[in-house]
Design a protein around this nucleic acid. Sequence first.
RNA 1: GCCGGGUUGGGGUAGUGGGUAUCCUUGGGGACUGUGGAUCCCCGGACUCGGGUUCAAUUCCCGGACCCGGCCCCA
Length: 421
Amino acid sequence: MIERLKGFRDFYPEDMIVREQIFSTMRRSAKLFGFMPIDYPSLESMELFRTKSGEELLSQTYSFTDRGKREVTLIPEATPSTVRLLGAKKNIPKPVKWYCIPKLWRYEEPQSGRTREHSQFNADIFGDASPIADAEIIGLACETLNSLGLKGSFEVRINHRQIMERILNSMGTRNITEGLNIIDRFRKETRERMIENLAGNLGSKENAEILMSFISEKVPASGADDRIREFFPNIHSEKFSENMSETVSALESWDYSDIVFDPATVRGLTYYTGIVFEGFDREGRYRSIFGGGRYDNLSTLITGQEMTAVGFGMGDAVLENLLREKNLWKIETGPNRYVIITIADEAQKFSLKLAGYLRARGIEAATSNTHKNLSNSLRSATANWYTHAIIIGKKEMESGKATVRNLSTGEQKEMDTADMN
RNA sequence: GCCGGGUUGGGGUAGUGGGUAUCCUUGGGGACUGUGGAUCCCCGGACUCGGGUUCAAUUCCCGGACCCGGCCCCA
């Protein structure tokens, strides 16, 4: 028996049906917002990720040298490929809105909500610098979760990189990236440790205390501006906080209301340049459900062409945990699925004909070919998610009717087969 | 890469330094080609792997693999 590789998952029909429902909800939501589908290879040149992400990330990927001596990587994230596609077709009129649900790989120790292979719903807008584009990206993430039945079960934490950088500068930071990384650890470190680290970065214990109390509290996103002014009246971040307000009010006008301003959300990647956001379950028991932000410099890095961009990624693993917990991981009623069971040898030919007749009319119909007794056939039919069994024996052959049994209720009806010819 | 806890048929479990390893369920076959998705009968199927201690290891010890969780990192 050959075992599955560590950190990978198998999907049997009962879960695959639900996954397909979820993916189709994602696609439907993307279309509602005007996004178009794209796709790209699972294997890319290692360079694509080296440019952007550095050796640290690269060491956590499936990378190898192929037979042509090329260094290649199983894609660990979607954005570089998306940007590559855009750069390869420079004359596409902007803005463009693209989405994709790729599989992604990372070579890491598996843990809760984290596997070595996962699917991620990914959407980006290129060439639209407006705060409304930010809102559309966040709105799409919210719409998707709402459609999956999670309305009210999650919150979106937003923040703005430029605002945080200005605050850090105004407080005398010795290194912005280091400062952001310390802030990013807010929910993992003790208060003492945070103050210590911040004081080291800012060179002042008083400033560390002020910044600490600023990031310690989330406020409704509409109150972000007041909150920033209250703590830092002199940092001149009006432009950015106005943009953020515009994004938030667009989201509220679409009725996506669980948005909070959270100064502790800065996101780890260095390439974000504007708004950043993460979606969390309300109880905060899982990792982030989705995350993203504006990244205006990444395209320059990969394609040499300047291009403003904003996007998000939503992994399937945390989403599944949450949906299961909320009892939303279930099979929706779809079209009826028929299986034709014969209980007389002379009915064989007729059953094949009936199956063909139904399929030609777009009805899902299979035949049961194993000649079991009726009890076993019915049991097997239920186990294979058929909704109805069409039973044909001597009686039916003579009368020109078929018996149709609803497999969940046991209710039976006669079906006229005389007009089949 | 590091740390903690696990691993007994497909799933769920009982148990043990010594004999044919418990029970439920699932699977296959039959009674049985008419709705008993039942019932009855029969049959498959497991101690995670390697090394050590021991007369004897599924059981005790060490190491690996895998699973669950955490760290690092976060895409």
